[in-house]
Design a binder for these strands. Sequence first.
DNA 1: GTGAAAGCGCTAACAC
DNA 2: GTGTTAGCGCTTTCAC
Lengths: 306, 306
Amino acid sequence: MSEVTRERVRAAADRLGYRPNRAARGLITGRTGHVGVIVPDLLNPFFADICKGVQARARGLGHAVFVSDTERDEGLEMDAIRTLAPEVDGIVLCAPQLSSEELRSLSDVTDKPIILLHRKEPGFASVTADLVEGMTDALTHLHALGHRRVAYVGGPRSTWTAQERAAGIEAMASSGKVEIIQVGSVAPHFDGGITGAADVVLASGATAVVAFNDIVAFGLISRFSARKVRVPDEMSVVGCDDIALAGMAAPPLTTVHVPKAHAARAAVDLLFRTLGTPAGEDVEPLQRVLPTHLVVRGSTAAIERP
Amino acid sequence: MSEVTRERVRAAADRLGYRPNRAARGLITGRTGHVGVIVPDLLNPFFADICKGVQARARGLGHAVFVSDTERDEGLEMDAIRTLAPEVDGIVLCAPQLSSEELRSLSDVTDKPIILLHRKEPGFASVTADLVEGMTDALTHLHALGHRRVAYVGGPRSTWTAQERAAGIEAMASSGKVEIIQVGSVAPHFDGGITGAADVVLASGATAVVAFNDIVAFGLISRFSARKVRVPDEMSVVGCDDIALAGMAAPPLTTVHVPKAHAARAAVDLLFRTLGTPAGEDVEPLQRVLPTHLVVRGSTAAIERP
DNA sequence: GTGAAAGCGCTAACAC
DNA sequence: GTGTTAGCGCTTTCAC
């Protein structure tokens, strides 16, 4: 067929407003043209950023994206996968609550490719951030400012990212350069638990505190402020994630930058790499780990020597 | 067929892991079982909250949800509608940038029902919040605290919500009880524009400021803090939206509470009401407006009389 | 009541 | 190359 004809047909189709029907196409090709992203809590800007990143990249690749918010509930995480899997070509999964066993049992639930985000599991492709490095940087920064007694307010112990952070903290603790005071584990959203943790930090004699994430850091600062403890003069605070609001707070938060949008794009790219691989000849699942870095802003200061 | 047989079939189907294929069903019924939600910026917790609400309600009604982030771009808003419409049964639309003409031209693009969220347009069903009341409450609160000269830092002038807020502000201004200083219009995300606005507020002699939204309020407070102006002692600040982080900031932000999740659920309900209406006999598009209320926290204080 | 058949919009594989 | 046909998984209709 001639190039001219081709163009005339295309023009006619356009004029009549013809759009191929994805559902009908999917019925025969097995491809839906959709991807899914599952997150524990959209209200946490960290995950909103991830959704935005997935969305942007998927759009660029001509795919629409389903978003599922699992409310940090193990059951809903599993449900979301089961529900979404038949509707999509693949899933970007942030499921901190799911056990390793459940994760591995996913192959019985669906054979759609799943890319883990901010979690590692043997046999799964994943994109993670180097939180061990991030935590080490945070403590090195505090050490350089003269802090020798530093509190760490941890998050939900069971999650992969919490364990990574803990590993970073412990590495520095065992170096003997700074003394670490572990202040329990706190839900990673702003509530009473954080207030309690702030009081424990204050009682511990620590001059600085590293928080599980920026939200927890904000909670701590809020309590410090209510108790008339000035940040950073009397207490230095370091967060983790570098959510957009971290730079807007007063004082702006010193925090570990985690490349959220970048990780999201990388996950989508990994997904399409898998999708592009002919079934049967599966490639070794790639595990990408992205670097983090400390962003020094206004919530940390050199200790005032007595 | 007997009840027993029905149950045996159901059991067998379950055992074999049978799931009806939505795409195939949709081909014949014309229903996809999906809904779409379009927002200008997922990174703004206000819209993240809306997505979460839409998602939760739609899940309860057995529908999966597509999310599209339009980056506050008029073109992308139109694109998103065009792309999403064929894949869904209806759309919840937050599109502040789209002109009224484009909005009305949507009937040529798709006949899928569209529910407007936080925007009103004749002929469209919508869910909005009473921002006029909210702004009035904010100014009344400041007046009661003794403030007589109040700055208002507005947002993108063309949007519906900005006009509503402005109407509320003007109503109070014309009452003569407080003098309003209009400080331009600022992009509703944290950046240099806000810094400049903060400086204008400071130069104006105002003792209090009402911000377009919480994000802008945070930006102002950050600049005030850098310029050693204490909030609320020397400057009271009121935000709008009541995003989750508003209560976490130091000081916690006094702000106009907008029922985000509630509005999202109402929008989905309106959508399903439309979907349940047999084609042809269309009902008058409903326009729900939800009440707002002021949440007084720590960023406002009584003026210190000289 | 129950079973068979047609067809939603598309793509694959097959003849021509 | 080009045109035709079968069929993806489901629902609906129409005979039985």
